[in-house]
Computed example of a mutant assay.
Amino acid sequence: MSNDIAYPVFRTPDPALALATARRLMEFGRCEHSDVSVYAELPSVAEVRRVAEALPEGWFRGREGRGESGWEFEGVPFDEQPPLVIGVQAAGLPADPAAYEGRLPVEFEQFDLPVGSIEDAFTAAIGPHTGEINWQSLSWPDAPEAGFYGESKHAEVTLLFNTRDREYAEPADDHTVLVHVRSTVHDGVQTREPYAHWLAAQVGLAIIGPGQRI
């Protein structure tokens, strides 16, 4: 089993510029089977409703509580759990604000969509909230002059909104583009980091920070 590591290659407070830059890198590895997924965390009922209006095909899922005895719905049949906890599209969102108590932030997501189908609308809708666009199933080419074979399994590009890390640990006032490669460690050194540098350079970018693993 292998894992990826993602290196930041660009950062800007301009979401449109961040998207354009991420797309330039993504296009370098885009292939027939490439797809895109989006994710955001929405902190209020008003923002859930705003995003639902802008992106009605997305899925919204509220948090499940956890106490000393375990998860809130542990052992409860799936079809008896609240729809918001299971996940609903915009048309199924509760009208009563009380239904969101203890469920915020609500997660928004759409997975495995055609490249180009969601990115602009999502970038316009996310506003100040943390989230990401992730392009996967790319195909990085060989770099014989750098001594590296290509990469498909871990060939991805991520655009982080309003955070600089993949776990959304800290909010930020800017947006970060990441290039993913396979994580290969030898004697404590990421031996494929130079490949990430090479990939970034092919589209006029450069690594600007340490690699991130999750």
Rank of each mutant, 00 (worst) to 15 (best):
D4L: 06
Y7T: 03
Y7V: 02
P8D: 02
V9W: 03
R11I: 05
T12Q: 05
A16G: 01
L19H: 05
T21I: 10
R24N: 06
E27G: 00
E27P: 00
R30P: 02
Y39L: 09
A40Y: 04
A40K: 07
E41P: 00
E41K: 04
S44K: 08
S44V: 14
A46W: 01
V48L: 11
R49I: 03
R49Q: 12
R50Y: 04
V51K: 07
P56W: 07
F60R: 11
G62K: 09
R63G: 14
R66C: 13
E72M: 09
E72G: 13
F73P: 03
E74P: 01
V76E: 05
F78I: 15
D79V: 15
D79I: 14
P83I: 02
P83Q: 08
I86G: 09
I86W: 06
V88Y: 07
G92N: 10
L93I: 05
P97K: 03
E101C: 01
G102N: 12
V106W: 02
F108Q: 06
F108H: 05
D112V: 14
L113D: 10
L113T: 12
I118H: 07
E119T: 05
E119C: 04
F122P: 14
I126L: 07
P128M: 11
G131E: 12
G131Y: 08
W135C: 08
W135K: 10
Q136T: 15
S137G: 04
S139F: 05
P141M: 05
E145I: 02
G147D: 11
Y149R: 14
S152Y: 05
A155M: 04
V157N: 01
V157I: 08
L159M: 03
L159E: 03
L160D: 03
F161M: 00
N162A: 02
T163K: 00
R164Q: 01
D165F: 01
E167M: 09
E167D: 11
A169M: 02
P171W: 00
A172W: 00
D173N: 07
D174R: 00
V177L: 10
L178D: 03
L178W: 04
V179M: 01
H180M: 03
V181M: 04
R182A: 15
R182M: 12
R182I: 11
S183I: 00
H186W: 04
D187V: 01
Q190L: 12
T191Y: 01
R192K: 15
P194M: 13
P194C: 12
Y195L: 10
A196T: 11
A200N: 12
A200C: 12
A200W: 12
I207F: 03
I207H: 06
P210K: 13
G211Y: 08
R213E: 15
